[in-house]
Write a protein that binds this DNA or RNA. Sequence first.
DNA 1: AGCATCATGTAACTTGTTACATGATTGT
DNA 2: ACAATCATGTAACAAGTTACATGATGCT
Lengths: 185, 185
Amino acid sequence: MSSIRQALLSLLAREPLSGYDIKQRMNNRLGPFWKVGSNQVYPELARMEEEGLVALQGIEQHDYRPARKLYEITEAGKEAVIRWTTESGGADQYRDDFLLKAYNSWLVDPERMIEGVREMKKQHEEKLAAYEAKVAELTSQPAGGIVADQLFSSISVIEFGVRYERLYVEWCEELIAKLSRREPG
Amino acid sequence: MSSIRQALLSLLAREPLSGYDIKQRMNNRLGPFWKVGSNQVYPELARMEEEGLVALQGIEQHDYRPARKLYEITEAGKEAVIRWTTESGGADQYRDDFLLKAYNSWLVDPERMIEGVREMKKQHEEKLAAYEAKVAELTSQPAGGIVADQLFSSISVIEFGVRYERLYVEWCEELIAKLSRREPG
DNA sequence: AGCATCATGTAACTTGTTACATGATTGT
DNA sequence: ACAATCATGTAACAAGTTACATGATGCT
């Protein structure tokens, strides 16, 4: 099963959404955790509707705006998400271009390399700040019932992001330190 | 520029290799950090040879075995790696199916979810052990000159892997603890 | 007898990415 | 005037995965 499909169903399991909503959720809210384009969202929604995993709940029309096609998950869709969520699968392989660049660090001038690492560090610091803000925002939200469980799940995931970015930043710092020692002078 | 191409060139920058060697290096040595199939390696090598980034160094023939086509990196190839390594690029987006499953944890029975998390934790513990062994192996290797720099680069990358797996295992443990609290009883 | 290893590759298929296309309105 | 936002989609291309194909030897 394709991963976008899983992502869409996971979002729709929480609330009815339009294709546009989904794109926003993925690119802004949880992004840059997962990015998708309209080309993936709309055709996949159509395919899932055909297969009965989602259903068109209705079409909203606000003034002049283009019509919003709201989709909701069906029972079959919910079952599919639950099945996938509980089924066991191998760990995804981690893949990052920048690690490959670090693997090539012996090839290039340390000073040049340090520049690149600093830049990367900065980018991850920004992500870290964004995730931390998001955790704070979600944590301060008082809620009960099913929503509390949803919040708990969301926070767990973003918490992972926070730690991941922290680890990345620390690793960059140490790499810079090590490369500095190698520098002539 | 495709990532496999970069991976192949990064390996060939260190020493001449055959397609088979490259596959082994990626799937065993550094794997499961990065997996490739022969379908990606051989055509890419051929393409890079056409473009003058690598050159056929010679063909080895040991007894009965199929001929080994040894490739070496050219000056143009080396320049391309260095250019790519020093050029700045956006941080890769992190993507992991299991996080999406965690995002759906509110949907499923906590006990079922805990099972899945335990399984995932185990897989990452295994990767952690493998990376730690690799770091130990590389650290104990005495070497000087250019090889020392190559070793330093390799260790940096695997060190990242060690920390990443450690973080993953810890996160799994905490998720299990949190899910346990949610369980009825 | 049957499977794994070494070593090369091809073919078919599924995913993901980049760019294009439309069209009204609100903000600069 | 020009860009951005809302909202839908299509088309063309690039990348990655799974399965297939060959053929000798060594191990169980």
